[in-house]
Every structure is written in C-alpha cells, then in structure tokens.
C-alpha cells in the first residue's frame, strides 16, 4: 500500500475569468518520481506554487504530508524542497555561503549544518567548488546546487520545476542521475518538464496538463495505450509506391498515418511486420525501414495535442 504524500482535490486557481488550474485531482505517492507535462501556460507551475503555499488557491483543497499549504505553509516548506525554474543564487556569495543562509533560514543547528552542507555538496559533486563564488557557476552547476539545497534540507518531497531546461545533454544526464538518487533516498519527486524523452526515462508516472486540466495521467505505457491505442505501432519507411494503399488491406491494421517524408505510422492489433514487408515489396516499393515502435511520451504528447487541435 503506497502512501500519498501530496493529495489535491478539485484544486482551482483563477485569474479573473481565466482558469489557470481547473479543478484538478492529483495524488503523489511516497518514493515515486512523478512528471507534470504540458505546454507552457498549461498550469504546471501554478499547481506547484499552490502546493508550496506560495500562491493562494481559488478553490479545492491540497494536502502536503498531511499539512494544508494555505494555513500551515511553514510546516510544508520545512519538509518540501523546491527547485524553481532557472533557480537563482546570490552571486556574490560562495556555494557554501548560499547553503549556510538556507540552513539558517531552516534553523538547522550550526554544529550540524556544516556537515550537512558538505555532504550535500559532495552528493552533487560540487564539493571542490564549495568556496567559489556562484557568479562563476554554469547553469548546470546552479541546478545541482539547487539539488544540494534539497539534500541538505532532508526534504521528504522534492518539487523540481523544469529542472533540465537549458542544460546541455551531459548536464541533463547528470541531473537526472541526481534525481534518481533522490528517489533512492526515499524522497518523492515531482517534476515538471517539456523535455519528454528525458522525463520518460526517470518518471514512474506522469500527468499531461492541458489548459489547466489534467488530460491524461498514469504510467507512460498506460498513456500510450490510451492515446495511441493498444497494440503494435510500426514505423514504415518506403518509396516508389503508395504505401498507405498497400497496407490498408492487411488484416489487423487499424490505422496508417503519414509520419513525415516517405514514412508512415502503422497501428495494428497484432504483429504485422512480416505481412507489411511482403506487401510493400510485392507492390514494387523499396522498403528502407520497418521498425517496432516503443511507445514514447513524445508521441503520446504530440498525438494528443494534435487531436486536441483538430477537435478545436
């Protein structure tokens, strides 16, 4: 039985007429990595700020570790670590001094804080630059310092807003490793992102935000089944013939959709690779690629929002 660390029920945030967050229900379980996905302005950051009590709710309720962020923000903020989008530190102070300031705000006893700070800096591989001014840090180092702050805080929940945005692939990889490290330490991680393939690799569950509502929620595979349909999606690349026409007649094929120049997406309820290959070749086409697609979050995302646009 997994225990919920964050429970939101009918959570609402309105700005005048506009509903930034429209009555969402959300549960985050202890020790999982949960991804909030969606386009910019879909309400991800607003949801996060309401969970931290940094912005007022317009309705509904949210409970974080059993505390109400509206009425007991100090209790919540003592136990939850937050890494804002493009986190800032005091440039004129060193990494260690920045963390000392946070430790003072957290009221960590001085004799304890030094050890905890060094340990946290070590866990994000910043211990050798602990006494360098933050002004000299790269973006990736700042994000890691933000993670160090959460580690030092011994937070039970880590909320990361776009942690990987603006990072190069290597720095992203390192950061995701650190996020996994948080999970290993038993911390529930809530992260928002639009870098879908990265998120897919770390998240246990995701929620897809759209216009303030949660459109889809579940594991990546569940979402794929919901949006892309169950079964075996294939990617076919061929030239010389009308591939769509050649494949439509095959038994079990549900959909043939164009997926770019000379490429088609085939959704079937069984493995139809052999038949597809035969049909293309016998029709006189040259088959250049035939691959079984793992459902990817990117596809779910694109597909879902394309469907939305058509519906609108």
């Amino acid at each position: 039985m997994s225990e919920n660390v964050i429970e939101a029920r009918g959570l609402l945030k309105t700005y005048g007429e506009a509903r930034a967050v429209d009555a969402i229900d959300l549960d985050i379980r202890r020790g999982e990595i949960f991804g909030l996905l969606g386009p910019n302005g879909a309400g991800k950051t607003t949801t996060i700020l309401m969970m931290l009590g940094l912005t007022e709710t317009s309705g509904g309720s949210v409970s974080v570790l059993g505390f109400d962020p509206v009425r007991q923000p100090l209790q919540v903020k003592r136990r939850v670590g937050y890494l804002p989008d493009a986190v800032g530190f005091y440039d004129h102070m060193t990494a260690r001094e920045n963390l000392i300031y946070t430790a003072r705000l957290l009221d960590i006893p001085r004799r304890e804080s030094n050890g905890r700070i060094m340990q946290a800096l070590k866990s994000v591989a910043l211990d050798d630059v602990a006494d360098k001014r933050v002004a000299t840090f790269s973006r990736g180092m700042r994000q890691r310092l933000g993670i160090a702050e959460i580690v030092m805080k011994k937070a039970e929940i880590a909320i990361l807003d776009e942690p990987t945005s603006g990072l190069d692939p290597h720095a992203t990889f390192e950061l995701l490793e650190m996020i996994r490290g948080l999970k290993k330490a038993g911390v529930a991680v809530l992260l928002s992102s639009h870098l879908l393939d990265r998120v897919q690799s770390v998240c246990d569950r995701v929620a897809l935000f759209n216009k303030g509502k949660i459109a889809l929620m579940g594991t990546v595979v569940e979402l794929a089944n919901q949006v892309l349909g169950a079964g075996h999606p294939l990617l076919v690349e061929a030239s010389g013939i009308d591939v769509a026409a050649a494949l439509r007649g095959i038994e079990g094929v549900q959909q043939v959709l164009p997926a770019g120049e000379g490429a088609w997406r085939v959704v079937a309820d069984r493995d139809v690779r052999a038949v597809v290959a035969r049909n293309v070749v016998t029709a006189g086409g040259s088959l250049s690629r035939l691959s079984d697609l793992q459902p990817s979050l990117e596809e779910v995302y694109t597909h879902y929002f394309e469907g939305e646009r058509h519906a609108a």
Binding site: L54, P73, L74, Q75, R78, Y82, T102, L105, L106, G146
Partner: peptide, 9 residues
Amino acid sequence: SRVLSQPIY
C-alpha cells in the same frame, strides 16, 4: 522563490 520556499513568511 527559492528563499520563499524555505520556512519563512
């Protein structure tokens, strides 16, 4: 936002 996410009003 980072400072305000610490336990301080």
